[in-house]
Amino acid sequence: MGLGLLQAGCDGLLMGGVYASIAVGLSLSFGVMRIINWAQGEFLMVAMYVAFLFVNGTGWDPYLSLFVPAAFMGVLGYLLQKFVFNNMLDKEKSREPLSILLFTAGMGILLVNVAQMLFGSLPISSITKYASKGIHIGSLIISLPRLISFCIAVVLTIALNFFIQKTETGRAIRATSQNREVAQLMGIDHKRIYCLTFALGAALLGASAALLVPFYAVSPTMGGSFGFKSFIIVILGGKGSILGCLIGGIIIGLIEKIGGLYWSDAYAQILVFALFIVILLFKPNGLLSTDKDA
C-alpha cells in the first residue's frame, strides 16, 4: 500500500516534469502574445515523428539528438509567428484573439490527418537501449528513461526561466508581456520579441518530444491529450509563468498516477479535468496568483 503510493508518486513526478516542459511554450505565447496555440499537442506529435525518424534513421542516442527536433520546431515556430500570427495579430483588435485559436485548431486537424496519411494511425514505439532499464531502490523501481527525461526537462525549463529572468532579451520579453505599448516606447521591437518567444517555446516543445521518444509510443492522435493537459497546466501555473508550469505539470502527473492507483486511469483523467474546471472558476490566474482581477 505505502509502497504502491510511493511508486505512483515517483512515476507521477517524473511524468509531470515532461508535461511541464511541453506546456511552457503554450504558457509563454499565452502570457506574452495572448495567443492560444490550439495545436500545441499536434506540434508535439510532429516533433516526436521528427525525433523518432531521426533516431531510427541515424541510430544516434535519443537524448543526444534532442537538438534536432528542438531546432526544427524552433525554426518552424519562428517562421509561423513571423509570417502568419503577426499578420493576424495586426488585424485583430481584441486582447485575446480568437482567430488564432481557430486558425491553430484548423492546423491541428490538418497535422493529425496528414500524419495519419503519412505514417498510418497505429502507434509506433522506438526501441532504444534505455527502454527496459530501471533503477531499483529497495522494491521501488524507477524507470531509467523516465528519470533521464525528467532531469533534462526540468533543467531545460529552469534554464529557460533563467534566460527570461536574467538576460536583456528575457527582460524585453517580460516587458512586452506586461505592457506592449510601453515596451514599444522603450524601443523594443515587439514583433521580433513575439517571434523569439514563440520560437523558444516551440524549441523546448521539440526537445520535450525527443525526451518522450524512449518511453512513449508516437501516433497521429497522441497530441490531443498532451495538448489538453498543457492547457490545464498553463491555467494551473498561471499564464506566462514558467515555474508555475513546473508546479502545474507535477500536480497533473501526480493526480494521474495516484488517482489511477486508487481509482481507474479513466477516472483519474476525470479528476484532472474536474480540477481544471475548479481552478478556472476560482483561481483563473493560476495557483500562484495573489490578485483576483483577470
Binding site: L102, F103, A105, G106, M107, G108, I109, L110, L111, V112, N113, V114, A115, Q116, M117, S121, P220
Partner: peptide, 13 residues
Amino acid sequence: NGLPSAIYGLVLM
C-alpha cells in the same frame, strides 16, 4: 483516410 478532415483543417486556416 485522413484527407477529408485534412481539407477541413486547411480550409479553416
